[in-house]
Design a binder for these strands. Structure first.
Length: 311
DNA sequence: AAGCCGACCTGAGGGC
DNA sequence: TGCCCTCAGGTCGGCT
């Protein structure tokens, strides 16, 4: 589900909601999701016998000192130089709320919540809670993930940042590392399709299927073009639109095609600004030609056959 | 080295 | 209603 703008929104929401709070208790019911980076460089999954108690014991008493984002990961900085790195994959998202345990399952509650928030955490899409934190001040943070693809890595800061998942990531598209010369270099060294290049997290980190299609449509570049075949003008347009589309999507608090919700349980507003993704058979918003959908690398790609030429 | 494919999971929506 | 099929915002490991 979430791509850079959605994960950025999650991180900003969490920053307001949990920085300064101390963890009192942890609960989870999908051990495969939990990865513990050990001091000896090895890793335990949450269902490892030693991890079951270790995870909760290690988190208890730690204070949240920061929340940030790297690619599509939310990084929760904890006291003692620990990090929780959460990758929500397709359907994961955080929720501020209140739950009570009933028969080993969390049930939404409403203590101290606004009516709107109490209703939000009861919404179906927010009800797949597999991870919960209780804080000392009585507040709670839930993590809902219908498909259970999400992954939570916990450990010493340098171990987590050095893990294979986080250390192999390319530059942040909105950071100063990705300037025009850097993008030109990435383009010229990529022989594959531009759509695949945009999705390759080791080349640029954070772009996913929706925003790749939006960026290519806005730049008038066909998704099947070879990355190294773009003209100077096309590279410039691509550069500007990577920044423009992602920045605007962050401003609108992301896109909610289906599962994505912010920490208050609300949908993102960028849906209204989507130009091609999911619009197969509908008219192009520039030229009225019907939008096509093809499959590239087992992912759908949407484009306008008139505005985005292959030749 | 790069590219393709299945695996990981569950839910939603469409066709019949 | 229900069954069966397809599709979904993302990686990841294993195989050519």
């Amino acid at each position: 589900m979430p791509e850079l703008p959605e994960v950025e929104t999650m991180a900003r929401d969490l920053k307001k909601a949990i920085v300064g709070k101390t963890i009192r208790k942890v609960w989870y019911d999908w051990p495969k999701m939990i990865h513990l980076e050990l001091e000896n460089g090895r890793r335990h999954l949450g269902h490892h016998p030693a991890s079951r108690t270790m995870f909760g014991r290690k988190l208890r008493g730690l204070k949240v000192v920061s929340v940030s984002r790297r690619a599509k990961n939310v990084l929760i900085g904890l006291s003692g130089d620990h990090i929780l790195a959460v990758h929500p994959k397709m359907t994961g998202h955080f929720l501020s709320g209140q739950w009570i345990m009933r028969g080993g399952k969390p049930l939404p509650a409403s203590y101290g919540l606004s009516r709107r928030q109490a209703e939000a955490i009861r919404e179906k899409v927010n009800s797949y809670i597999h991870f919960l934190l209780w804080f000392k001040d009585g507040s709670m943070l839930g993590y809902s993930d219908a498909r259970k693809f999400g992954r939570i890595i916990f450990g010493a800061k340098e171990k987590v940042l050095g893990s294979k998942e986080l250390s192999s990531l390319g530059p942040e598209p909105l950071g100063s590392d990705l300037d025009l010369p850097a993008l030109r270099k990435i383009l010229s060294s990529s022989r594959g399709r531009i759509k695949q290049m945009l999705l390759d997290q080791t080349k640029i980190a954070g772009i996913g299927n929706i925003y790749a299609d939006e960026i290519l449509w806005t730049s008038k570049v066909h998704p099947l073009r070879r990355a190294n075949s773009l003209s100077d003008g096309e590279a410039k347009a691509l550069f500007n639109n990577i920044k423009k589309v992602l920045t605007s999507a962050i401003k609108m608090r992301g896109t909610s095609m289906s599962d994505y919700r912010d920490a208050s349980g609300e949908s993102g507003g960028y849906m209204r600004l989507i130009k091609v993704y999911g619009r197969e058979g509908e008219p192009c918003l520039r030229c009225r030609m019907l939008i096509k959908r093809i499959v590239i690398a087992a992912r759908s790609a949407h484009f306008c056959p008139r505005c985005q030429r292959l030749a």
